[in-house]
């Protein structure tokens, strides 16, 4: 068994347990045999409908979002050589949110056109995410300094928030409510028919992220040193950025700006595996991200019966201690001085 193999297996088991629990648990408890029947034997009845129509898409969404955000976080941390990089911190989800907000609040305008709503949201989120990424890349080239980059990411985030509130001030109550709910983050709003729209781009992004494992390892020594080792660093960086945009944009379009998962999961994975090798770290982050997102979803659903907790409150409560730990210990990243 290679280094980290056991951890990978454990994380995979956690994902399976999370999926099973996510299908069985909730305001209506369905026994696992009932879940099995509903999924594979075409079981009917209320329980079957709940499992297939409500919980299955929610579980797929949570797993895909957690996995995708974690992969995006790891890509950003390595490419920008920055432990605090992540889709949220660098303003990528902010950009995606702004894109979605513009089309969501302008729905009366384009709503008359024969366009699929999901397609419009996804394209808007991707556009916002990639626009912010291009800005970040440009800034990184110009200043090449991690702290400045983080400050810039925060500024972009604030700018997006400011523009969002301006948009909200002038919008109708109905559109506003939809947007506020979306902004709190949720895995529950996708629905079975729309799941492929989320799952397929995320799957593509995950495959790309794993495929970049070898050159990402070389990038750990810095971009120029990686070039000296035969890595086309500019190409790897671009691939990583487009992959992050695809993952961050798609997930934000469907789940809202989910906080902290992308930033925190790679650090937890590093701490468990005690490794910087992306060939195990990337799959581990993906599995752990999926497992944690499934866990958060369970907390959201079952904390108080009848009340859905905002997802972002749960991911933040989970993510903030990790970030503090990274800042205060510096263990998983820089040399202790």
């Amino acid at each position: 068994m290679p280094k980290g193999g056991w951890w990978l297996m454990l994380f995979a088991v956690l994902v399976v347990v999370g999926i099973a629990a996510g299908l069985a648990w909730g305001s209506v408890k369905v026994p696992l045999t009932g879940v099995w029947e509903a999924l594979f034997l075409g079981g009917s009845g209320t329980a079957g409908t709940i499992v297939v129509q409500v919980r299955l898409p929610e579980v797929i969404t949570a797993a895909a979002a957690g996995a995708g955000l974690a992969a995006a976080g790891l890509l950003m941390q390595t490419v920008f050589h920055n432990p605090l990089a992540g889709p949220g911190v660098l303003g990528i989800t902010g950009g995606a949110s702004l894109g979605v907000a513009v089309v969501m609040l302008a729905q009366p305008v384009w709503g008359l056109l024969p366009l699929a709503q999901d397609l419009v949201y996804t394209v808007a989120a991707l556009t916002g995410a990639v626009a912010v990424l291009l800005l970040i890349v440009y800034a990184d080239r110009r200043v090449g300094d991690g702290v400045t980059l983080l400050v810039l990411g925060l500024m972009i985030g604030y700018l997006c928030t400011a523009l969002l509130s301006v948009l909200q001030a002038g919008s109708e109550a109905q559109a506003l409510k939809g947007f506020v709910l979306w902004g709190m983050g949720t895995f529950a709003g996708v629905g079975l028919a729309r799941t492929p729209w989320l799952a397929i781009p995320v799957l593509l992004g995950l495959v790309a992220a794993i495929g970049l494992a070898k050159p990402l390892n070389a990038m750990l020594l810095g971009e120029e040193q990686a070039r000296a080792m035969g890595v086309d660093a500019a190409r790897v960086r671009n691939m990583a950025i487009w992959t992050t945009g695809l993952l961050g944009g798609t997930i934000t379009a469907f789940c809202g700006p989910v906080a902290f998962l992308g930033l925190a999961v790679p650090h937890v994975a590093r701490a468990f595996l005690h490794s910087a090798d992306h060939r195990v770290l990337m799959p581990a982050s993906i599995l752990l991200g999926a497992a944690l997102a499934l866990g958060c979803d369970l907390v959201v659903r079952t904390a108080w019966t009848g009340v859905m907790l905002p997802l972002n409150a749960v991911t933040s409560l989970l993510g903030i201690p990790v970030v503090l730990w990274v800042l205060l210990s510096g263990r998983s990243w820089t040399r202790r001085r």
Partner: peptide, 27 residues
């Protein structure tokens, strides 16, 4: 190159193994 890279959780043998980069396959 000059200077000391931030290598995080990379151990000595993993870093030296990175030298084989141009000789190994896709993975």
């Amino acid at each position: 190159l000059t200077g000391r890279p931030d290598t995080g959780m990379l151990d000595v043998v993993s870093l030296v193994s990175l030298g084989r980069h141009p000789w190994t396959g896709h993975w």
